[in-house]
């Protein structure tokens, strides 16, 4: 990279017009990146800061100031004691539902995407088209029919009623299909087969290790989507004891007087508590992102096969 850039710079230093043009485009790029960084980050920063404030400080202080550790502690204690520890139950439920679904999703969709991309079998194209169609269907429109189906199987109000629908993730199949068909060279797999690998072994020992970026990507999207899902668990799980955190959050919203003046003073959640609850609800996803980040963006097959 540097080797290449060096001669170009010396050659362009001759004409100042080119240098000015370059500087302008650099400035444009810089401003663009910073503006969007602010757009994406300011609400998060505000969220972090506001969880350290009392309800009055939230209204009166500068939105970019830090409250106090004391108030953070108070919000924290109030949050966990809300409705006798409901938040803890909701968080546990979220971990259970999204975690189980993640495992099943990966076990199901990665082999399927691989087979669709690299193997010939009857019904392959039909399966691809069906996958795309189902993927495009508004999931909310499936919630009610899925509910009736689950109801018929007597699974309503059980963890399975959300875990199984969560585990059906055509997006993951399509993503692995795209990945295997564009980024994993067929020569490599053919070579493995000539060396005597069976289909299963080729997949397990050759394709899967090369696929770690897309596995991380699919796992991540699946976890985030299921963690944040609201409509399905809302319909499937009527009892507060079964709520995941997202549904629990709206129950807290309904108890916050700022957004619902009907709430009595003693049942109320103060706005900073609601802020902290939002923060707690997103914490696991942030952790997963940090862990998976390394895999998410590694450019992959460079050097997989030589021409």
């Amino acid at each position: 990279m540097t080797v290449l850039a060096a001669p170009r710079r010396t050659s362009s230093s001759g004409s100042s017009a080119v240098t000015v043009k370059k500087a302008t485009s650099r400035g444009f790029v810089f401003v663009l990146l910073v503006l969007f960084a602010l757009f994406f980050l300011v609400p998060i920063v505000w969220l972090l800061l506001s969880s350290t404030k009392s309800a009055t400080a939230l209204n009166s202080q500068n939105p970019y100031s830090f409250g106090s550790l004391h108030d953070l502690r108070r919000n924290w204690d109030a949050l966990w004691s809300f409705q006798d520890g409901a938040v803890k139950t909701w968080m546990k439920n979220s971990v259970l539902y999204a975690g189980l679904a993640l495992v099943i999703t990966l076990a199901v969709s990665v082999p399927a995407g691989y087979a669709l991309a690299k193997m010939q079998f009857a019904g392959r194209r039909f399966l691809l088209i069906t996958t795309l169609i189902v993927m495009l269907m508004p999931t909310a429109s499936l919630v009610l029919p899925t509910f009736l189906e689950i109801n018929y199987a007597h699974l309503v109000n059980t963890p399975l009623s959300v875990v199984l629908p969560y585990s059906f993730f055509p997006f993951g199949v399509y993503l692995t299909y795209i990945y295997f068909s564009t980024a994993v060279p067929a020569d490599l797999l053919a070579a493995a087969k000539i060396d005597g690998c069976g289909e299963l072994r080729t997949f397990w020992s050759i394709a899967l290790p090369l696929a770690s970026p897309v596995v991380a990507l699919v796992g991540f999207f699946s976890f985030v989507q299921n963690w944040n899902n609201f409509f399905l668990p809302y319909v499937m799980l009527p009892g507060s004891g079964q709520y995941p955190m997202q549904v629990g959050l709206t129950q807290m919203l309904a108890s916050t007087p700022t957004f619902n003046p009907v709430v009595g003073a003693n049942a109320a959640v103060s706005p900073p508590e609601l802020v902290l609850a939002t923060l707690v609800s997103i914490a696991p996803v942030l952790v997963v992102f940090l862990l998976a980040q390394r895999y998410l963006v590694t450019g992959l097959t460079a050097g997989g096969t030589k021409e």
Binding site: V224, N228, F230, V247, L249, T278, F289
Partner: peptide, 9 residues
């Protein structure tokens, strides 16, 4: 980062 906050959050 905001991707973590889809849905109700």
């Amino acid at each position: 980062i905001p991707g973590a906050l889809a849905g109700a959050s």
